[in-house]
């Protein structure tokens, strides 16, 4: 166990934010879910007792008859905003006094940094480069992520949970978001930050970075597993296209079955475009961990190889 190596990575000034994130994300996940479960209990109680529901103020926050439902912004909100600004400033001041922003040697195109890492918040994308070609990892997937995020309000047809924490009423969307954000996005960043070393090779936390490590690339394209040679361009491309097509077809079909079983109301309420978008985004999102598994577990390089692009 090379504690020193781990220490270097963890205490690199630019890595401090991701270390902070490691504590903040679980905290806020817990904090949000705690309030969700509290609301869920209240919802259950009210659903069991419709008479109470008619008079209840329907929040977990305390309420006494006669209280105003609103308060003045001045001073009740502004004092909090002011306090928040002071606390944030204080944190920044202390942080800026004790930790210097990094500055490396002057830029030198002839001296490659190894590992050459993007800022931590882009390491998820950089880690995706291991599994996909740059046109997917760097251009198409970020586009799909942004487009998918923007599509969320238009494909989430569930009228419940509008403006309050709840888990029970929104299980499907919360699970999807947790998988996409907490599992995929943040785990990829953590891998990129803490695991990847020189040559973007896999070094477990505490393993010494070996700049001379040589890994024999055993990765093969999927069609080679089935006896199709790289030189058989058309056959390989056809095979790859079939596999990718089959993934979307089978994945889409599986999603359709699962959605009908576990989210029947969503299926009923969504129109064709909404339903197709939901399925497409789900299938593409799960494509990432599947490709990761193929690459890391089964040494598959490309699923589809064509003269113009590879997937």
């Amino acid at each position: 166990m090379d504690w020193h190596q781990l220490m270097i990575i963890t205490t690199a000034p630019d890595n401090v934010p991701i270390v902070i994130m490691l504590f903040l994300m679980p905290f806020y996940t817990w904090y949000g879910l705690k309030q969700s479960f509290a609301n869920d209990r209240l919802i259950e109680k009210l659903e069991a007792d419709p008479e109470l529901a008619k008079t209840h103020h329907r929040k977990t926050q305390p309420w006494v008859k006669g209280w105003d439902s609103t308060v003045h912004v001045w001073p009740y909100l502004l004092k909090i905003e002011f306090l928040a600004a002071i606390i944030v400033t204080l944190i920044l001041v202390v942080w800026s006094i004790f930790l210097d922003a990094p500055l490396e040697e002057p830029a030198n195109p002839n001296l490659t940094m190894n590992p050459s890492k993007a800022p931590w918040y882009f390491l998820g994308l950089q880690e995706m480069l291991v599994y996909f070609d740059p046109w997917i990892a760097g251009v198409v997937l970020p586009g799909i992520i942004l487009g998918g995020l923007m599509a969320i309000p238009y494909i989430d047809v569930n009228p419940r949970g509008n403006g309050y924490y709840t888990y029970k009423q929104r299980k499907f969307s919360i699970w999807m978001f947790f998988i996409g954000f907490l599992v995929l996005w943040l785990v990829l960043i953590v891998v990129g930050t803490f695991i990847r070393g020189p040559g973007w090779m896999w070094f477990w936390p505490g393993e010494t970075w070996d700049h001379h490590r040589i890994v024999h690339e055993l990765n093969r394209n999927l069609h080679e597993f089935f006896g199709i040679k790289d030189s058989e361009v058309l056959k390989a491309a056809g095979f790859g296209a079939t596999v990718v097509g089959a993934y979307f077809a089978v994945g889409g079909f599986a999603c359709d079955r699962l959605f009908r079983k576990f989210a029947p109301e969503m299926v009923k309420k969504q129109n064709v475009a909404q339903y197709a978008t939901t399925i497409a985004l789900t299938v593409m999102m799960f494509g990432l961990p599947i490709k990761m598994l193929l690459r890391l577990g089964f040494t598959v390089k490309y699923v589809m190889v064509t003269p113009w692009f590879n997937i």
Partner: peptide, 15 residues
């Protein structure tokens, strides 16, 4: 204009 920024931007724009 240091190594850190140069290579991060090189990696980024190569995409």
């Amino acid at each position: 204009d240091d190594q850190l920024g140069f290579w991060a931007v090189t990696v980024g724009t190569n995409m």
